[in-house]
Design a binder for these strands. Structure first.
Lengths: 142, 142
DNA sequence: TGTTGACCTTGAAGTTGCTACAGGGTGTTA
DNA sequence: TAACACCCTGTAGCAACTTCAAGGTCAACA
C-alpha cells in the first residue's frame, strides 16, 4: 500500500510517516518503480504500535527503547515493564507539578475579586512581587 | 547595571534576557559607550514580572497580553483577570488529560504482573492492539 | 490530446522557550 | 603583559511534528 493509505489506517498523516522514517522509528520501505513508498502489514503494525505509544505520551526515545527490546525473541519483558514504569513516574511527576501550579494560580486569582483599577489589582501586584522561587526543574517531557 | 547583574537579580541567564529582548518581551535598553546593555530598575521590575509569569507556565503570548493590558493607566484589570482565568483553564484541562492518561497507563501496566516471554506480555499486546483512539487534541501548551 | 485533480517526491523552514556554542571585543586585576 | 570574567552578535540545537515550495505520477474525463 502507498503512504497515504498507511497513514489513514494508522490515523496520522503522510508527513508524520515520512518523519518517523527519517528519524529511524519506522524502517524505510521498498519503493515502487515510480519511487513511491510501498508498505506491507508489518509496517502498519509497527506504525500503529508507535502511534499507540505516542497516544500515551511516550517520547520517541522511550518508543525506541521498546522497539529495541522487542527484537530479541529470547528475551523477556522485564525491560518493557521498566520502560513503562518509568513513564508512569513521569506522568505522576507532571501531574504533581501541575496540581501545585494550579494551587498557586488559584491563590493568585483570589487576590482580585472584581474589576478595578490596575494599581489596585491584586493579581498584578502578586505577579510583580512573587519571589521568583526558582521554579522546579522539569524532570519530564510532559 | 549590566546584563549579568540584571539576570542574577531576576534569577535567569544573560542569554535569556537577550532572548526576551529579541522577541520583544523586554524593551531594548540603552547602551554604554562600549556597546554593553545598560539596565535600570524598571527593566528589573519588568523582567521579574515576566519570570514570575513564566514560573506560572504562562506562554510568551499570554505575558505579552498582560504587558499590553498594563500600559494604559486608564483601563481596569478586567482583561488581566480574563487572561489569568484562561490560563487556569489551560492548567485544569492539562491536569484532566494527564489524569486520564495515567488511568490508561495503570490499566496497561496491570496487564503484565511478572517478567515473562515477550509474546505473553500483556503490555506489548495492549500497545499493539489499542485502538489509536484519535487522541484528544491538545488545547493547551502545558 | 490535453487537462484536471488526487496523490506522491524531496528539502527547508516554522513552532516554543530557551540553551549552547563560536568567534570575537572589553575591562579589571596580578 | 597575561589571565580571567564579562560582554557582543549570530547561528544551531532540542521534540515532535506541521507547513510550505516546487515538482513528478497517474487515472479519468472532454
Amino acid at each position: 500500500m502507498k503512504i497515504g493509505e498507511l497513514a489513514r489506517l494508522a490515523d496520522c498523516t503522510s508527513e508524520t510517516v515520512r518523519f518517523y522514517e527519517k528519524t529511524g522509528l519506522l524502517p524505510p520501505p521498498q519503493r515502487e518503480a515510480n519511487n513511491y513508498r510501498s508498505y506491507g502489514e508489518r509496517h502498519l503494525e509497527r506504525l500503529r504500535f508507535i502511534r499507540n505509544c505516542r497516544a500515551l505520551d511516550m517520547t520517541h526515545e522511550e518508543i525506541h527503547q521498546l522497539l529495541s527490546l522487542m527484537v530479541d525473541p529470547q528475551s523477556d519483558c522485564g525491560g518493557v515493564n521498566q520502560v513503562l514504569d518509568a513513564h508512569i513516574c513521569h506522568v505522576d511527576a507532571r501531574i504533581a507539578e501541575l496540581v501545585q501550579l494550579k494551587a498557586q494560580l488559584d491563590e493568585l486569582r483570589q487576590r482580585c475579586q472584581q474589576t478595578q483599577a490596575l494599581d489596585a489589582c491584586g493579581i498584578l501586584q502578586g505577579l510583580a512581587e512573587m519571589e521568583t522561587a526558582a521554579r522546579p526543574e522539569r524532570h519530564t517531557h510532559l
